[in-house]
Design a protein around this nucleic acid. Structure first.
Length: 906
RNA sequence: GGGCGGGUAGCUCAGCUGGUCAGAGCACCUGGUUUACACCCAGGAUGUCGUGGGUUCGAGCCCCGCCCCGCCCACCA
């Protein structure tokens, strides 16, 4: 193995091998485990949010694959209607063209070309991340198959009366020229104004100047430019100030039109003046008021946000914001403007282009959501689908219970065209296939036109879990892999996507689309801002891969993320992952070096084994450290499995990190050197076998997080038998059986013994650090205090080794009262006392010892108080009381030791 | 306006159903030419766990109030 690990070369090498050998194709054997990727937009490039999302999925998928499940991860992309159309229109604009210049068909053709050329970016980037998707299952939401699914679903909903068309107020983006769904609108705080406008009461006076009216009412509005569309003003029916106005009419300033004053509950008495202007065509609430009172709907605006003729000759053609200024000026000069106040409110913006959204009256298609929501609600309530973290279930319930109809038509060209057809005879129908003739009058295709609108992008993504498996055909994939297992996503698309998929699954499949939804956090920068291109604060995953490696990116993300908690991250954090990769590499080199000295040694023999298998050959020769590392490996595995099962990726990452770094490398590898550099060949072979076992297991445990470096080492060391024999197919480790544990003597006593000795050595190291400046003649002496003879003997052996290593002058076993202590092994092996000699800073050491004694005495007092408290003794569980008693013993022992240290210093 | 999340060492965060729970990594300080690794090893210092009450024998952990930060939802013109 090379001295230095080169992730670039290694990572570039493995992905093609995996892909070409079909390593990520489902095996067809075992329990099915399937996942669909949240399809990124074709226009997208990989950002940190994807990196987190896709790494999580890959960890789950690789884990399940190694556990023998029949694993299928379906990748793909979303056609992203508005976003993609915007990108292509932008490119066209550089050529000085608009989409209208090309015409619909040519434009759509153009988008397809764009998709072919650039749409693969993100898909390539997923490979760089190491995602083990099955690319033979890759889908695109505008694929032939998925398009059929969309048409079929629409037709079915249409025929069942769950789709309807109507003239409604919708959110409208004037820049994109299309309707938007409610959740495609982002509300942001806006520092605006509240204009107070006088509406003269009819019959009070004559004249055109507002001030000339003695009798007027005052209306407060944030949107004066919609004034020409007013068809009434409204007051709260219970508002006593305005009872006299009921049934009166007022004059709409600037227009001279008479409009009625209406009582309506919608009006809040406290807000503004308590009188609201009603503009049914330009405000969702006013629209409803208008419907209740049969008001005219005057649409004064064009689709592009300019005013039309109905706004009046003076304003026609003006942009809406120019028009606002103009109207305010005109109101002022006409004497209608009373005063202006600053006013902060929320204004909706297009989630794609950030233009201020209009409420616009237009004919649109809607889906009735209530009937779809009910089973979907039940699916989560009954536990057929579980959310992690669970609290998102409430968010889901709240939204589903108040669900509103979904506006699915978009006035753009890129997308699934609405499959509704109109015949000249007046017949309207929906059909999955383009019709040859009118089913009613039999007219041929020339008399038939298709609805010009396309469907909301989410109308195809809500079918993703089954459309990608072949629906509406009944395929083997569908039978085997639906429902999918885990859906991983950030909570920001819980309504857009998650809820709708559940509805679609329940409705069209009669079965939930997935069993579990795992919500992870949103990736933010060190300042806590959401990473976005516009802020320029986005870390580029590819840059991180270039600088640190994909493994480093993945590992750092996993050890940083907590369920449902946002991830704050900065560049230097990826050193954690990089360093871990290097650590593993070096450990591998070390093991290989020693294995190379054992004739006929084979790593392959350990590629599927579990700890203990090889060590079992001569259990009587196992050292306490051998037993300890075997037991610790088991504990790490159990911790990791539990964490992954609970979607706690950070816990899983830390479990394996601590095991490999602190337990295996810092401890066992160092201890093993005594034997590895020793003269006993049989013992050396045994240690190498244990290392091969334990390290092979560690590699497999790390693999879901760091697929590349583990694969490389797997091959370099020879665990793999051929280039295509991937670690990703190696069996996931299993814990030792109870029999094996017993046979090998892997007991709790061993763990406490080794821990105690660890303390001894740690203490010894501290001593060395403390005396390093001393002359050679001033050597430390160890005082080992043990509570059982066996422990004392063992500790003496270790201490002697250590003493030789440290150059200590003597090791001394205290006898007498120290040996007559607790009989049980685990409490018997406490930490050691140290006797110091030599010209160390005795004064400082004494002070330290005195401080510690004082501290311990404090603790002891607390414990004593507790143990003499009748209530505590009566109410606390016996185990807790016992614990406190043990604590008292420990404290007493500690105290004795510290006092001994102090005495030795005096 | 409603709902949710967070406020623990200088920084980024762990602390599961109340009883060694005061932790990890980074940064910092001290020491290290021991034959896997300085992307390393050994050792060390650091916190009235946002705040004020309450429940309990016992509270970062449970309850109530308050203060910050962030997110989501919402038709107040």
């Amino acid at each position: 193995m090379d001295k230095h690990y080169d992730p670039k070369a290694v990572e570039a090498k493995w992905y093609p091998i995996w892909e070409n050998s079909g390593a990520f194709k489902p095996s067809g054997k075992g329990r099915p485990y399937s996942v669909v990727i949240p399809p990124p937009n074709v226009t997208g490039i990989l950002h940190m949010g994807h990196a987190l999302n896709d790494t999580i999925q890959d960890v789950l998928v690789r884990w399940h694959r190694m556990r023998g499940d029949d694993t299928l991860w379906i990748p793909g992309t979303d056609h992203a209607g508005i976003a993609t159309q915007n990108v292509v229109e932008k490119a066209l604009r550089k050529e000085g063209k608009r989409r209208q210049d090309l015409g619909r068909e040519a434009f759509v053709q153009r988008v397809w070309e764009w998709k072919k050329q650039y749409g693969g970016t993100i898909v390539r980037q997923l490979r760089a991340l190491g995602c083990s998707c099955d690319w033979s299952h890759e889908r695109f939401t505008m694929d032939e198959g998925l398009s059929r699914a969309v048409a079929q679903v629409f037709t079915r909903l249409y025929d069942e009366g769950l789709v309807y068309r109507g003239n409604y107020i919708v959110n409208w983006c004037p820049r994109c020229g299309t309707a938007l769904a409610d959740d495609e609108v982002e509300h942001e705080p806006n520092h605006g104004h509240l204009w107070y406008v006088r509406y003269p009461v009819v019959g009070s006076a004559a004249g055109v100047n507002g001030e000339a009216y003695k009798d007027y009412i005052m209306v407060a509005t944030t949107r004066p430019e919609t004034l020409p569309g007013d068809t009434a003003v409204a007051v709260n029916p219970k508002d006593e100030r305005y009872l006299h106005l009921h049934g009166k009419t007022v004059i709409l300033p600037l227009t001279g039109r008479e409009i009625p004053v209406l009582p309506d509950d919608y009006v809040e008495r406290e807000f503004g003046t308590g009188i609201v202007k009603i503009t049914p065509a330009h405000d969702p609430n006013d629209f409803l008021v208008g419907k209740r009172h049969g008001l005219a709907e005057i649409n004064i605006m064009n689709g592009d946000g300019t005013m039309n003729d109905l706004a009046g000759a003076a304003y026609a053609g003006l942009d809406r914001f120019e028009c606002r200024e103009r109207i305010v000026n005109d109101l002022e000069s006409g004497g209608f403007l009373d005063h202006v106040e600053d006013y902060d409110n929320q204004v909706g913006h297009c989630y794609r282009c950030h233009t201020v959204v209009e409420s616009r009256l237009s004919p649109q298609w809607f889906v009735k959501m209530k009937p779809l929501a009910e089973p979907a609600l039940e699916a989560v309530k009954s536990g057929k689908i579980a959310f992690t973290p669970k609290r998102y279930e409430n968010t889901y319930f709240n939204w589903m219970e108040g669900i509103r109809d979904w506006c699915i038509s978009r006035q753009i060209w890129w997308g699934h065209r609405i499959p509704v057809y109109y015949c000249e005879c007046g017949h309207e129908w929906a059909a999955a296939e383009k019709p040859e003739r009118c089913p009613k009058c039999g007219a041929d295709a020339s008399k038939i036109t298709q609805d010009p609108d396309v469907l909301d992008t989410w109308f195809s993504s809500w079918l993703w879990p089954f459309s990608t498996l072949g629906w509406p055909d009944s395929t083997d994939d569908l039978a085997r892999y639906y429902p999918t297992a885990d859906l991983c996503t950030a909570p920001d698309i819980i309504f857009f996507w998650v809820a709708r998929m559940i509805m679609a699954g329940c409705k069209f499949m009669g079965e939930v689309p997935f069993r579990n939804v795992n919500f992870h956090g949103v990736v933010r920068d060190a300042q806590g801002r959401k990473m976005s291109k516009s802020l320029g604060n986005s870390l580029d995953p590819l840059e991180i891969i270039g600088k640190y490696s994909a493994d480093a990116l993945r590992f750092t993300l996993m050890q940083t993320t907590s369920p449902g908690i946002d991830v704050f991250i900065s560049m230097d954090k990826f050193e954690i992952g990089r360093n871990f990769g290097t650590k593993i590499w070096n450990a591998a080199r070390f093991i290989q070096m020693h294995a190379g000295k054992i004739p006929g040694f084979s790593f392959a023999a350990h590629s599927g084994s579990n700890p203990g298998d090889a060590a079992g050959a001569a259990p009587e020769r196992l050292s306490p450290d051998d037993r300890h590392i075997l037991a610790t490996a088991d504990a790490a595995l159990a911790a990791m499995d539990a964490a992954l099962a609970g979607y706690r990726f950070q816990d899983a990452a830390l479990a394996v990190y601590d095991f490999v770094w602190s337990q295996l490398c810092d401890w066992y590898l160092e201890v093993a050197k005594r034997d590895l550099y020793g003269a006993d060949d049989a013992r050396r072979a045994q240690v190498v076998a244990i290392l091969a076992d334990v390290f092979g297991r560690a590699l497999r445990m790390i693999h879901p997080f760091m697929p590349f470096v583990t694969e490389e080492i797997w091959h370099q060391l020879g665990y793999a038998t051929s280039e295509t024999d991937s670690i990703s197919h190696a069996p996931w480790p299993e814990p030792m059986s109870g029999e094996l544990r017993a046979a090998l003597g892997v007991t709790e006593e061993i763990r406490s013994y080794v821990n105690a000795r660890h303390d001894l050595i740690t203490a010894g190291r501290a001593v060395r650090a403390g005396i390093s400046a001393l002359k050679p003649s001033d050597k430390p002496a160890f005082v080992v205090s043990a509570k059982t003879p066996e422990a004392a003997i063992r500790l003496k052996e270790e201490a002697e080794l250590l003493a030789g290593f440290l150059g200590a002058s003597s090791v001394e076993i205290l006898s007498g009262e120290h040996l007559s202590g607790m009989p049980t092994a685990d409490t018997a092996l406490g930490t050691i006392g140290l006797k110091l000699s030599g010209s160390i800073d005795a004064e400082a050491e004494r002070k330290k010892a005195r401080d510690e004694i004082a501290k311990l005495e404090g603790f002891l007092r607390t414990v004593e108080a507790k143990l003499s408290n009748e209530t505590f003794l009566g109410k606390a569980p016996p185990a807790i009381v016992a614990q406190q008693k043990a604590r008292r013993e420990e404290l007493l022992a500690d105290l004795a030791r510290k006092r001994a240290v102090l005495a030795s210093l005096s």
